[in-house]
Design a protein around this nucleic acid. Structure first.
Lengths: 249, 249
DNA sequence: ACGAGTAAGACTCAATCTGAGAAGAACATA
DNA sequence: TATGTTCTTCTCAGATTGAGTCTTACTCGT
């Protein structure tokens, strides 16, 4: 039976109603570490614990709901500069009965990649939200540990096949900046020479601005050339993570 | 504001309620063609058009709801032989206001890979459901054209990185069987010799049974060795689709 | 101003992987 | 039996990979 014929004979009181929310796994890189946006819970259940930002879906698309929630938590306004550069994509939905002790909730989780954003504590609504290094983000409320883990795996995988690493950088960046994004998200260092060769050999990944950085690295080294994101939507060939036996089986 | 603190002050009548359904993109291979399970709609809206099977989520997990719907449409029982071999994974959710003209519905779409299943018309509930080659599955009800397209892209991509092609075959299969799965899903022929070399070189993809097929191919050729699915969860290295420029940008 | 340390970028090299093709043997059908 | 198909293995040239070296340019601390 398909959903629509089902609906035609649907008695609204027949099944317990299900609430729909969005939760956002918002990632950024601060001080070379991958961080996630968390909020502190005031009320039970899980009072005092941290959780992913989220809320009810209103009369809007799911994407709009996720962007709105992200804006409310960071104190930034959708459409204005910084939020406009955020990459937002749907992650997956979580709907186990009992994942919220009060009622049946289906949550559509989103994944956001953001360049380094200001501390959200500046705004008013955003008090109680802050960036936490992902390896310290454990013991979250609800099933948010699992949601975060799924988001991280998606992010790590996306860096292999898409140019989305540039969503974590400033509009103009050096190859070294890009390499540090990969290192932070993947949690392992990369061979600088091979990374450089690879990035420049993938068509449409980056395009040169012709400029170089104003000064060299903080600890020395020559000025580096600056690049912008190219027009590729997929990396061909892909930039694969170093082989790790434990990912295979 | 996170979902739970929102809930604490939630007025149930404040927002229009949202119904939650599951829809299933069930794929199988018949006569060398990739097919999707569709149902014929009897009642408006979209009466007479075809749609993906689906229905309301009851007091069950989303996965259970999807498996239940698939069983109802195919006339097969979950847990019994054939349905137990079906691979089922969540695809993504669709929740645009207006995607169903009657009310706000968020649908969690699932993707199913099945070995060749019997025609569902045998069962009673399953009347009106049938397998349709994917290139003939156009003009579906609701936003199901887009859901199907997303499912197909996911399936094509999954074949690259996972051993899920074996979910389309019998428990024992030849390398040629496997190659035909790839050819059907990707829509392009593969070099038999290179495919053979590649499949056997990926650790854990397939394991030999020691047996060979009872007879050669229908149009000639020697008996082929039989294999089972191995224990790998990911293919390393991956079996990539032939380069196609149009996928890149 | 100078020396030590760091990083960008270009290069080398051997090992591996890839796509394309060829060949032999086994098997089907007409 | 003749013809065509398929399985399986092999070859080979070209591309890609990981690891390392080298030069040059720069920052920082002294």
């Amino acid at each position: 039976m398909d959903e629509a014929s089902y609906l035609a004979g649907y008695d609204p009181g027949r099944y317990p109603s299900i609430a729909v929310t969005v939760d956002v796994v918002a990632l950024t890189i601060r001080d070379g570490r991958l961080c996630v946006l968390l909020v502190e819970r005031g009320a039970p259940p899980f009072a005092g614990q941290r959780a992913l930002p989220g809320g009810f879906v209103k009369a809007e698309t799911l994407d709009e709901a996720a962007l709105r929630e992200l804006g409310e938590e960071t104190g930034l306004k959708p459409g204005e500069g910084e939020l406009a550069r955020v990459h937002l994509e749907q992650l997956r939905s979580y709907g186990d009965p009992g994942r919220d002790p009060r009622m049946r909730i289906v949550s559509v989780a989103y994944l956001a990649f953001a360049p380094s954003l200001p501390d959200p504590t500046a705004g008013s609504d955003a008090a109680g939200a802050y960036w936490v290094p992902v390896d310290e983000a454990v013991g979250l409320a609800f099933d948010h540990d699992a949601v975060l883990a799924d988001g991280l795996e998606r992010a790590r995988s996306k860096l292999e096949y898409t140019p989305l690493a540039t969503a974590f950088t400033a509009p103009e960046f050096t190859i070294g900046d890009l390499r540090q994004v990969y290192a932070a998200v993947w949690g392992e260092d990369l061979h600088a020479g091979n990374f450089h060769r690879k990035v420049l050999s993938v068509p449409g990944f980056v395009e040169s601005t012709g400029e170089t950085s104003a000064r060299g690295g903080e600890r020395g080294g020559p000025k580096a050339r600056l690049y912008r994101a190219g027009d590729a939507k997929l990396l061909h060939p892909a930039l694969l993570r170093p082989d790790r036996e434990d990912r295979v089986r």
